[in-house]
Design a binder for these strands. Sequence first.
RNA 1: GGCGCAUUCGUCUAGCGGCCUAGGACAUCGCCCUCUCAAGGCGGAGAUCACGGGUUCGAAUCCCGUAUGCGCUACCA
Length: 512
Amino acid sequence: MSQTEASSAPSTPDAGAPTGPVRVRFAPSPTGFQHIGGYRTCIFIWLFARRFGGKFLLRIEDTDTARTVPEAVGALLDGLRWLDILPDEGPIVGGPYGPYYQTQRQALYEFYANELIARGGAYRCYCTPERLAEMRKEQEARGVKSPRYDRRCRYLTPEERQTHEAAGEPFVVRLAVPLEGQTVVKDLLRGDVVFENKELQDAVLLKSDGLPTYHLGNVVDDHLMEISHVTRGAAEWLPSAPLHVLTYQFFGWEQPIWVHFPVILGSDRKKLSKRLGAQPTSYYQEQGYLPEALINYLALLGWSYDDKTDILSREQMMQAFSLDRLSIADAMFDPERLLWMNGVYIRALSVEELARRALPYLEQPESQGGLPDSVKRPLDTAYVGRVLKLEQERMKTLGEAAQMTTFFFTDDLHYSAEHLIGKGMDREKTREALRRSLGVLVDLSGFEASVMEPPLRTLADELGLKPGMLFMPLRMAVSGRTVSPPLFETMEVLGRSRTLTRVRQALEKLEE
RNA sequence: GGCGCAUUCGUCUAGCGGCCUAGGACAUCGCCCUCUCAAGGCGGAGAUCACGGGUUCGAAUCCCGUAUGCGCUACCA
């Protein structure tokens, strides 16, 4: 392998190292499948926890009940299990800070919303969605520069408030953003990001259904779960971070360390999203990417080890990961580089391991990319190993195994006589070459590549052919293809009887 | 529109004031190896460090503008 592998200890052992205990969380909302962008964020968080002996938690932010997809959590966990980055605390494993589903923590949010109101940091708003819509329309018509909630309910008199309550009107709880001054988000990666309070909205914290929005749920849970570093995508969350800072301040809580990661962009330079056709992570599993390769690739999309290392084991990453080597700009996903890296990992596998891992891909139904259904399952593992050993260095994914190796498993080859006749050859010369080859092969004392190669080369010489001119028709006869692993190894694995049969069949085709 | 963030080869990145006539990797091109395809080896092309001003003896690195891109601007996250 030419690519450099990490060897020595990280150059800056403790630069950017946290001073207190690390507790970090991945907090997705189960509104669909996770694409690699989400998993990349998760990998950063997981690596960070591992590097500094911290805890890695998973919290499900399922407060948007209308968009919640029931299978999402299971799929997410399948992905985490596949990548082997399971959380220390979370659904299923549990933990001392549970429950880890926000919908199961509803009472907490109501309590803290009231607490915030009592502290003057929030208020109940009785405006109906209809009024809000009208207000927006009206503001737009007036050409207001930045339309936002007009704070009508913030200034209700106690009597008016009483009236709304007495009528039992539904309400939301809004953050009472200070009208003046600035709020600064001390982001670990970008430094101080300053926001004018007058640009901020009185965002909804608690919805009329009693569930919190992200702004409340995230803050309350991060505090209660003693999250040390609030880690999330910058593109979507940095703009509302001042709201969260304000909420911590109103509660009188100590701020966590804010870390806003860069996000992954699609080939259109837009943030990866389901809507824009990003693939779910299960896609990469189905295609036969190795989880360790995907992790390696994803970790290096936005983080670097040094100026030249691109192949790193999990252990090396866990030892070296640090936030100060994170890049700050969003990165475009490059499928070609992933493919290359997967090939690197496949080549590094022992043959046994490769066979073990490729087996499910070979044995799955033909319609899903497996070997022809006519091939008997289960496959002979030892034979699969011998076959894969020949294809290993040209495989980029495990999913390719079946189509690359079909001819090792079935005698049903599809090619015509013309395909046997290579450049500089004609029908008669080809027939002669194959007939003489057959003779050589039949008489061989053994059927190892090393045994068959010398006499076949001698034969080519005798026939006045360049080696390739003889080997090409043999390759076609034996594999039905113009491209295959080395001829002699291929014939060795196929075995004498199968090889001879195939050469005879080729001769028959030429007789037709 | 307002606000925020970002900006080094096509792509991912190294670089945190002099080591940079900018390093590595993917992709690409050529050569070598060679029974095909790969893998591997060697080499090439590819970045006026978005642009314009400063600061400094000296800037890709610090500051200020501009441009471009992306994101946010919901009782979604």
